[in-house]
Design a protein around this nucleic acid. Structure first.
Lengths: 103, 103
DNA sequence: CTTGTAATTAGCAAATACACTAATTAGTTA
DNA sequence: TAACTAATTAGTGTATTTGCTAATTACAAG
């Protein structure tokens, strides 16, 4: 959960995640859409991967990155808890018996 | 939006936000629940305030912090876009005419 | 106006995060 | 094996973040 929020704390990484919503992309295709060096992009992708937000698949020499929705849903769970949306567990400590994985 | 995600990228700040869900709290009351120096807590609260996630109100010598839900909803909007939830704007670039405030 | 409590600001050190270039690995093809 | 493309890893410099202690501001009461 912490890794997820940390990963989403950088605008470039949020852009990457948004891009991948439309479907998997090769590392180089992603890098081409950013105004930074490819290795920098690789590092950002590695952060997303460490957070579980993306998965990779190798196809020949290219590596394709795919979005993993379930990881993003952790973050949604936390935020929806804040809004008081019904049917969602309140944040830890606010009520007995919460999952305590969060924060 | 960026400030919001950056603010939520630290576990202590997420805890603070979660605590405030139950209602406003004085700076000192918040600090007392953390294992760090009060000025450090003040700095975290300042980050939350800069992100628009909390507001302050002075009452005598005490300063009370209150959660601002609407700021958190920005982040929710981004994340819900990722999940493909219906009725939510897709992330910028994925479709023409999106608001472009995000990322 | 002095004292006491609440809270923030200043100033600093240590740790993280970011971006770059150069070097390296992985895989394909001649 | 040599050459070429795709991608990552290494190494480095700088900037930001995080936490601390000490000093300061803001109010209320005596």
């Amino acid at each position: 959960m912490n890794e997820v929020f940390k990963a989403l704390s950088h605008p470039a990484r949020r852009r990457m995640v948004a891009m991948l919503r439309q479907g998997p992309l090769a590392s180089g295709d992603i890098a081409a859409r950013f105004d930074m060096a490819w290795p920098t992009v690789t590092a950002h992708l590695a952060a997303l991967k460490a957070a579980g937000l993306v998965e990779t698949e190798r196809d020949g020499t290219t590596v394709r990155y795919r979005l993993v929705i379930s990881a993003a849903e952790e973050a949604i769970g936390f935020l929806l808890g804040l809004t008081g949306a019904d049917g969602v567990d309140p944040p830890p400590g606010s009520e007995p018996g919460s999952k305590e994985e969060e924060l």
